[in-house]
Write a protein that binds this DNA or RNA. Structure first.
Lengths: 186, 186, 186, 186
DNA sequence: CCTTAATCGAGACGGTACGTCGTGTCTTTAT
DNA sequence: ATAAAGACACGACGTACCGTCTCGATTAAGG
């Protein structure tokens, strides 16, 4: 008989089970029952923590996002820094999380939040430093660095993910950086 | 007793009922049963046409998108033309359709398509003319008009919709056009 | 694939499954789920007909009672007639039904009925003829035959069943007839 | 904060809480949780003493039965003595206990006992004296006083309670005594 | 014009998941 | 040691949809 889990250990087991279900079957076939089953626990344990599917999915996304905080690259060139980050996002679960986050209509209604805030809260994008270094190197014009411009390449990547449901080809990443982002900041 | 509908009339009634359900309750609470009920018909009639929820939703989105084809504005200035179009999108059901289209995971898997193609197939964006006129007026540099750049303001609007689930403030539209789009084409 | 049952056939299958569950596991461990399982159907089918456990149990008892209507003996002597009937009751499922009927508190509250009425409605005891024949034979004094006296041996048997939960020994049956019932009607 | 109870005081509090739950909600909706709640204690405290629902109910019935031992009337006439006792039973919780006792299938199975024994053990019916006095007064024929006959009016009352779930009308009590019991003992 | 075939409307069926509640076990804190 | 608080694993509850199916009634089209 496996010993009885509780507290944080149990919670992690639940969120991990949930994440595996999400990746294996997708949001549409994501089932509380399956999570309960996979985690080897019982409905009440789940519902005590998250009152419904959407709550659980949201918690799972945040949990997984927190576990996979991206490293901030430092290649010596803004272009490479930004591209590296985009490639990492493109290759990891952040992508899947982005798509899933759009499904949480119920949760957003309940809390007045939105997918963007969830992704931010999960700590998707700690990129301030990148730009500071680029400015220090004299690569870019500081006045042009509005928040919108800083977010631009990542917004476009996110848009690409949300409208193709597939990994974005590297050529597209370069196109975004070279023909949209860099011309605006130099 | 109202006489029995058939063929195209019945089909339109079903899609309209489906659309109303979608707008009133959202994708998550969208139910075949409710559509059947609202249309005053019976399950088989629905399933004869669309084999499952996602098929029906997809058909509904395409149907509604076709009904609401946007007019192409002609204000004499590219800035105003683009802004006008964005404002219209922002104010109409195209917005809702954009969000819904992301939910059709099942459908895309079955057909190898993606949300973007659905929106395009639905005829979201007939904007070629806008740019031709702007070039003719000498407002912009033709070589810079890559497909990506032409799509840029609309991609960013779409991204905004998909990450905020809310109407985009007019200020944001102007910011997109004035600080991102126009600088790249002039 | 077994063909789909409906209407009366399905209903009988459900009630039979329910009765088997009742006899095998008793009222306390009687489960809607188990009935659904055993009948190879699904919850809604059960709940469409009987809104809860008690409704189903009641229907099952009535159904089974109706199927096992006792024959009216004709031995030529009132003593033997009554004893024969009591022995039959004692040996058959009528006994179990008697015990179960007491458990239906919920049902009685809802309908203002009582265990007695359920048993009567199920047609437990069609014994009028017995007494008519005994009177015709001159065995007994008609004036003494009040309803209570006629019911007496069966009431006492029932009481015995309800307080012992076991088949009543034959000696007890005879004692009831010989020392209580017969002295009162001769 | 009220000080912590232990031993007999705690036990009585639990049984009283259980009895109140039983009378308020009936056996079917009787819940360990509710008893725990009402007694302001915790599950283990309950389960340490009674291993399951039926054990607790049984203990509660015995406890309550012991608290409500009936007085033995002495009116000078057997008829009145017996009727008085029946009326008391009819008016008190003994009635409810009778009904509940039938529900303890689990307990009986575990111990090889039966409802009758439980009621007897609880001391329901200390009526020997009644008959001794009646014999002494010359009211009745001693040889006829078999145990069955002595129990007869009470058995019939109990039967009535068990098949009607309601207080027995006074007329019925008199009918039992006058047309069944007394004719057999005079 | 009348039969024939299709499809409509109604609703039951077998299934899966939902979110809730109760049981009996167990751990932790503190009296 | 045991009370109180409360989590845990289990499993049934009754409900809601899904997608399939059977049935009789209606309608359109063809002989």
């Amino acid at each position: 008989m496996p010993e009885r889990r509780r507290g944080a250990a149990l919670e992690k087991a639940l969120l991990d089970a949930a994440w595996e279900e999400l990746t294996e079957h997708g949001y549409a076939r994501f089932t509380m029952d399956a999570v309960v089953q996979r985690a080897g626990t019982s409905p009440s344990v789940l519902y005590r923590r998250w009152s419904d599917r959407d709550e659980l999915v949201r918690a799972t996304l945040v949990h997984t996002l927190a576990e996979s905080r991206l490293g901030v690259p430092d290649t010596g060139s803004l272009r490479e820094d930004v591209l590296t980050l985009m490639r990492e996002i493109n290759a990891t679960r952040v992508q899947l999380i982005t798509v899933m986050s759009v499904h949480l209509a119920g949760y957003y209604q309940g809390t007045g939040t939105s997918p963007g805030e969830l992704l931010a809260a999960g700590g998707e994008n700690p990129v301030g430093v990148l730009f500071e270094r680029a400015v220090a190197r004299g690569e870019i014009t500081p006045e042009r660095l509005t928040p919108r411009i800083k977010a631009l390449p990542f917004d476009l990547l996110r848009h690409e993910v949300l409208t193709t449901f597939a990994p974005v080809p590297d050529g597209v990443l370069e196109e975004i950086v070279d023909t949209v982002f860099l011309p605006l900041v130099r």
